[in-house]
Design a protein around this nucleic acid. Sequence first.
DNA 1: GAAAATGTTATCAT
DNA 2: TATGATAACATTTT
Length: 243
Amino acid sequence: MEGPSLVILKEELKSLKGKRVIDAAGLAKIDMDRLIGQKVKSIRTWGKHFLIEFKGVSLRIHFLMFGSYRLNETKEGRKPSLRLKFEDGSEVNFYTCSVKEIESALDDHYDWSADVMSDQWNAAKARRKLKKLPDLNVGDALLSQEIFAGVGNIIKNEILFRIYVHPESKIGHLPPRKLTELVAEAHNYSFDFYRWKKAFQLKKHWLIYTKKKCPRCKVPTLKKHTGLTKRRTFYCEQCQRLY
DNA sequence: GAAAATGTTATCAT
DNA sequence: TATGATAACATTTT
């Protein structure tokens, strides 16, 4: 699940704010007891981290590839990683998630300016971080959560097509204007993703991801597992220039 | 029904 | 010890 999907989730679960936990359970190896009696102070996100803030502790929920959740219902025959029940009778279940406790204040723990979906997103800062990593592939750079928190593999593919850059280009080889474009699109496309996903029209708007043909020049696309993490990358050799 | 995938972290090898 | 590669995890879609 990528950053924009987490923001949608945050909106869906914002009703939990202010509610008091009466039961906490699940497969996650965290101290459930300390949550009981606690009120939800806030529901936040940082990149792909879904955050439930309590007094003195916050829960960091990561959905990885297969995570899911249910509000006021359960998934038949499955044990949640985390289940929270509230005093008004509502409950939320998170499945196949990584759940961790964060002891420190969230504002100390997270740099919100690195989150592409945050209103504190700082493009200039991202650009400065990239400048220090000239040997990095652009694809790997986009997947770096320290620089572009929230960007995932789909977003990576779409951004690179939008700016016509080959996924294996080196950051240091990009002309300054392209680097600026890269940073700008990380933010812009993430918001397009958010709007389309909310309208259930996300796939319809994919230009290159999973596509057989380039929508621009009609040449067959290439599919290759690229970069440090060997994630699948669709691209057009004609339109996306290797720098 | 096998294979692959919107991802990260732990562990192993060098 | 530090770095890099590989495995582990687990569910839905193709």
